[in-house]
């Protein structure tokens, strides 16, 4: 069990930043009504953020990444099961990578 100072600093910084996000809503957003553009912006944020993260991860892996992403999406859409979709995505990714050049 070790606790590296740099790692601990990064973890604490993440914890403070996350607490600030949580507290900002309670302390600030209840008094200041965000405008229409900001509300629309925040509404789009979860989806665009996940796309912005997933796109390079998929592109980096080429065909295997695309097969894995497609399988994940199809199974999630069909069954709504996160474990099932992760299993299908990893399996498709693994299979294409094993078969590919």
């Amino acid at each position: 069990m070790s606790l590296d100072p740099a790692t601990l600093a990064a973890i604490l910084a993440m914890a403070v930043a996350t607490f600030a996000c949580r507290a900002a809503g309670y302390l600030v957003l209840r008094r200041v009504q965000p405008g229409a553009v900001l509300r629309a912006f925040l509404g789009h944020l979860p989806g665009t953020l996940f796309v912005a993260f997933a796109a390079p991860a998929v592109a980096r892996e080429g065909w295997a990444g695309m097969a894995g992403a497609a399988a994940t999406l199809v199974v999630m859409r069909a069954t709504g099961s996160v474990p099932g979709s992760l299993f299908a995505g990893v399996a498709a990714f693994w299979a294409v990578r094993a078969l590919g050049p």
Partner: peptide
């Protein structure tokens, strides 16, 4: 490790 990006991809649905 593809499970990590797959978590985000699944939540897109």
């Amino acid at each position: 490790f593809f499970a990590a990006p797959a978590c985000f991809i699944a939540l897109l649905v």
